[in-house]
């Protein structure tokens, strides 16, 4: 029975995460339009909300161009490798507390991996690089290859930062489990300020936020697909549904990373009244996550793109020392 519940939760979360993707795309277009004195999509459905579905349909019916002289098997494998990690990361993100029960079964999260937790998130996100690297290589296109090279270097560098920046949170919570990390944020500071890690770990939060931008290939770190330099980077040669898969992976990653940041630094499902009505937790979690997604879109409307060497220098010479200092301070504070 336990497995059935687990499977049911997985199916529901999977459906919700992939189902929310068209709406994130729509939201991005609307928010960008607002920031740029435009209207944005407004023809398909009310407020153009069905635009993404129309686009998806269009993409599926487009001709699927497969260039000659490529490594076909890998060319087909790459988009799949890129979308699977994006979809399965959400399995450990708790969107509701352990008190959230349906028919006596906890439904606040798909799985709570006690000793792995956040490591699972990292393990899965590192796999996302494969899709990009292989796509770039298999396309047999110089721009694709350059995009792939850039992105592998970028993602490996920023993964280190992702890992280091949360060490403070992990040390403070004393656990790798995402559920326990959220629970550790329940006690308010001085009895009034919410006990979320954002306030105790501002530096860690900042580094994690920036590194997630890089990990999700978002502006100002969208170099792997910098259209002004590399045409479309690693997915230059992809069309039709294979392109759609890369596109979906990108937006689902955005959502997942927002969810992870919410969990680690913003108190996840916590909020006023959540003890009595656990269902409110889902609402709090969604609101925080959506706010972060909005923030990422806002950045995209505002910032230009960094140059490759500037990006790497920033990671290794600025962010890495800052992350290490953050760990030292936290360790000292905990050991005190």
């Amino acid at each position: 029975m336990e497995y059935v519940v687990m499977a049911a939760k997985a199916v529901v979360v999977f459906a919700l995460v992939s189902g929310s993707m068209p709406f994130i795309v729509w939201a991005e277009r609307k928010v960008m339009a607002d920031a740029q004195a435009r209207i944005g999509p407004n023809r398909v459905g009310p407020f153009g909300i069905l635009q993404s579905f129309a686009d998806a349909l269009k993409l599926i019916f487009k001709e699927d161009v497969v260039p000659t002289g490529i490594d076909k098997r890998i060319f087909y494998l790459a988009p799949i490798l890129s979308i699977i990690p994006a979809l399965i990361t959400f399995a450990v993100v708790p969107y509701g507390g352990p008190d959230l029960k349906l028919f006596g079964y906890p439904v606040g999260y798909v799985a709570d991996l006690k000793d792995v937790g956040i490591l699972y998130v990292f393990a899965v996100t590192t796999l996302g690089v494969y899709g990009i690297v292989l796509a770039g290589w298999a396309s047999n296109n110089k721009y694709s290859l350059m995009g792939a090279l850039r992105s592998s270097a970028q993602m490996i560098s920023y993964e280190i930062l992702l890992g280091l920046s949360i060490m403070g949170v992990v040390i403070g919570s004393g656990s790798l489990s995402l559920v326990e990390i959220v629970q550790a944020q329940a006690t308010p500071y001085f009895g009034v300020i919410p006990g979320i890690w954002l306030f105790a770990q501002p530096l860690g939060f900042l580094i994690f936020l920036i590194a997630s931008l890089a990990e999700a290939n978002r502006v100002p770190f969208d170099l792997p697909e910098a259209e002004s330099e590399l045409v479309a980077g690693f997915h230059t040669e992809y069309s039709s549904f294979k392109f759609a898969m890369f596109f979906m992976a990108e937006y689902i990653n955005l959502l997942t990373l927002s969810g992870v940041i919410t969990t680690l630094f913003l108190g996840g499902w916590l909020g006023p009244g959540v003890d009595r009505f656990p269902i409110l937790g889902v609402l709090y979690f969604s609101v925080k996550t959506v706010a972060l997604v909005y923030f990422f879109i806002w950045l995209r409307a505002t910032l230009p793109r960094l140059r490759y060497d500037q990006l790497m220098r920033f990671a290794w010479k600025v962010m890495l020392p800052a992350a290490l200092i953050n760990i030292f301070i936290t360790a000292y504070w905990v050991a005190r």
Partner: peptide, 12 residues
């Protein structure tokens, strides 16, 4: 601006 990845100035 667009060449350098900033989309908004272009629209303005």
């Amino acid at each position: 601006g667009l060449d350098l990845g900033a989309t908004s100035p272009f629209i303005y």
